[in-house]
């Protein structure tokens, strides 16, 4: 812009008009800052509140011990293990499936075929389905129809169904955002479509996949309704994926709502859950930055 001479110059104009525009600018800026401040303050308040109530209950023994007296005493060791296993099952299933579906939508059905539109529409509807519906579906399908019973496997698969829509849509958008010029260049080099996908598009869309992952993990970790009917309520240390195992969110819910005197341990467990969430967030961020220096 700077090198093109412009005929328009800044005219002082009427002092009144100028100041009105300036006032508007200031007001808009204040409003924007205010909104951001409110959002940040709400998060800070939540964090400080949970930390304040929960930090007293956190200790090494709380992290590793088995719960006793319905969770009022003891720790959350088996619960943390179950939570991580459920998350692992969920991710092991949803990431490959999600990548495949996103690749189909973004690479193999360019444009708007009827099929692609149908898939997209279904995903958007699925993403909005209340989690209790996934819970009841998971209970009916995985636990009963497929005979997995209340188990970590059932819970992880139910969560995978729930997380997939977000994961696919975000990854698909990431793949679409890769400039076509890169695909053309790959084609000009004689690369096959698959090679282009694996070597060009996918690496370029990795940051988007990371965002999808963080969103998915967040939703999975926070989930209570979908898990209480699938992975269940048992606090024993799981010996396998076919054992029932209580997730941290279910544990927090039970302590806060069902167990008189469970508030202290509920807060400590909530703080732990937030810490795990933040840790996963930071880790994903760090990996993405390491592999994609330009992205933030």
């Amino acid at each position: 812009m700077s090198h093109t001479p412009t005929t328009r110059t800044m005219t002082p104009g009427k002092p009144g008009a100028m100041s009105r525009a300036a006032t508007l600018d200031v007001a808009a800026a204040l409003f924007a800052w205010g909104c951001a401040a409110i959002v940040t303050a709400a998060f800070a308040w939540l964090l400080i509140d949970v930390a304040w109530r929960g930090v007293g209950g956190l200790s090494w023994s709380f992290l590793v011990d088995e719960p006793s007296d319905a969770g009022r005493a003891g720790g959350v060791g088996p619960v943390v293990l179950s939570t991580l296993l459920i998350l692992a099952v969920c991710m092991a299933v949803s990431v490959p499936l999600g990548l495949g579906a996103a690749a189909l939508l973004a690479e193999f059905t360019r444009g708007d075929t009827r099929f692609a539109r149908l898939v997209r529409r279904s995903l958007d509807v699925l993403a909005g389905v209340p989690s209790i519906v996934f819970g009841l579906f998971g209970n009916a399908f995985f636990c009963l129809a497929l005979g997995m019973g209340y188990s970590i496997l059932s819970g992880g698969l139910t969560l995978a169904c729930m997380v997939l829509p977000i994961l696919i849509r975000v990854t698909e958008q990431g793949m679409r955002d890769v400039p076509d010029a890169q695909r053309h260049a790959a084609a000009a080099l004689g690369l096959s479509r698959t090679t282009t996908l694996l070597r060009v598009t996918l690496p370029a869309a990795m940051p988007a996949l990371a965002v999808g992952l963080v969103l998915g993990v967040g939703r999975a970790l926070a989930e209570t309704a979908a898990l209480i009917f699938t992975s269940g309520y048992v606090t024993r240390t799981p010996a396998s994926l076919l054992d029932s195992g209580r997730s941290l969110s279910v544990h927090i819910y039970d302590l806060a709502m069902n167990v008189p005197g469970g508030e202290t341990h509920a807060s400590a467990a909530a703080l732990l859950l937030i810490a795990v969430l933040l840790a996963i967030n930071l880790l994903t961020n760090w990996i993405t930055r390491r592999t994609h220096p330009g992205w933030h």
Binding site: A88, V89, A92, P238, A239, S240, L241, L242, D243
Partner: peptide, 10 residues
């Protein structure tokens, strides 16, 4: 882990 765990439990 899933495979091993699964075998162990049943």
């Amino acid at each position: 882990a899933a495979l091993l765990g699964g075998c162990g439990d049943s």
